[in-house]
Design a binder for these strands. Structure first.
Lengths: 197, 197
DNA sequence: CTTCTCATGTAATGAGTTACATGATTTG
DNA sequence: CAAATCATGTAACTCATTACATGAGAAG
């Protein structure tokens, strides 16, 4: 249950700076990417809905009338009000969606632990890469925090960093566990141990 | 991009034990809940599709013909093959979806850090409650691990525990940060500090 | 028989993805 | 102008949620 979040992410982005659709898409790819992903199609659709609702306004530039031309949008007073209202509203509880969990459980029922080893290795690499990227961003953008805005944006990044650290930690634990299972398994193949035989 | 995962979660559940739709719904609420959430509507729809595809089989019980009667499903040989194939396939990269991140960013642009304090407090409580629940389950179900299957299921639980621990850690950091921001803010209201005035 | 509950199912809608199409601008 | 690229948009489809409806069995 995470409905509407894209809408408010767009309003937030437009609060920071008025933009065209493709600028928004690029901004989402960059600075929003570590907590929300989307596509340009979704952005255009949402912008149309937001404009119809009067939450955003299309710039009245006569040069921006035909199809291929960029259209600049800005947030309206009404849009800002709605953003505030949403921010003060009860948070929706996000649905749990852990594909790695599903795969592990499948491997469990199929009795094939080694089936998930490539997955875990790849996952570990991905987490490490992302953490490294976030650390780079942190050093570059948050060495000092002159204002409240920067401090809160830093917290969002820190959230991503915590997530990735946890992912790394768990992948390492899981891989160690797989190793021990493999060892126990090969030991079972030759049941005479060095100490007892 | 997490399509199809529900399908394979259902196949996994049916591999463990044949079930009716509502039994599946209950099992998802219980043991699958910490890595995948869904509804009975989705389950019934998916079961129909899976049966049409020949991946699951409806029990041929003549007592199970009309609407309100439970229908028992089991996985077919074909279904098991497809589950294996999926398990060996490239993992899809899950999309990032962090609603708390969106709210924080919104609070940042609105310059209102205190707007997220209730959210963070609630979130912290939720993480703590879930972690406690997981620890309870761990003690109850994974005190010893006689087989591979149990060990892998334990790993899934450990993943959830790592996630919740990270969430707790981050919420605490974020709340401390809010406290310091509030303090700096009130200090700005009376710019004469004890040492200089 | 009425009421309650359970299991199953329908309908409507919203959210999200993929593939593709078209107008405008730039570059050679 | 031809080709490439960019910005915008359409269409079709899948995934997911919400609200509601209906048949069956149990309890009174």
């Amino acid at each position: 249950m995470t409905p509407m979040s894209l809408r408010f992410a767009i309003l937030t982005a437009l609060s920071e700076k008025e933009s065209t659709g493709s600028e928004l898409a690029r901004r989402f790819d960059r600075s929003f990417a570590y907590f929300w992903s989307t596509t340009h199609q979704q952005i255009y659709r949402e912008l149309d809905q937001l404009e119809r609702a009067g939450w955003v306004l299309k710039a009245e530039d006569p040069a921006q009338e035909s199809r291929g031309r960029p259209r600049t949008f800005s947030i309206t007073e009404r849009g800002t009000q709605e953003l505030c209202r949403w921010l003060a509203s009860e948070p929706e509880l996000p649905r749990v969606r852990d594909v790695v969990g599903v795969r592990l459980r499948a491997a469990a029922v199929l009795g094939d632990p080694e089936a998930v080893r490539p997955l875990l290795t790849e996952q570990l690499e991905r987490h490490r890469a992302r953490l490294a990227e976030y650390e780079r961003i942190e050093q570059r953008d948050f060495a000092t925090e002159p204002d409240v805005r920067t401090a809160l944006q830093h917290l969002v990044l820190r959230s991503g960093m915590t997530t990735e650290s946890g992912g790394i930690q768990w992948c390492e634990e899981a891989l160690r566990r797989l190793d021990r299972l493999a060892e126990a398994d090969s030991a079972a193949d030759r049941p005479v141990t060095p100490s007892s035989g």
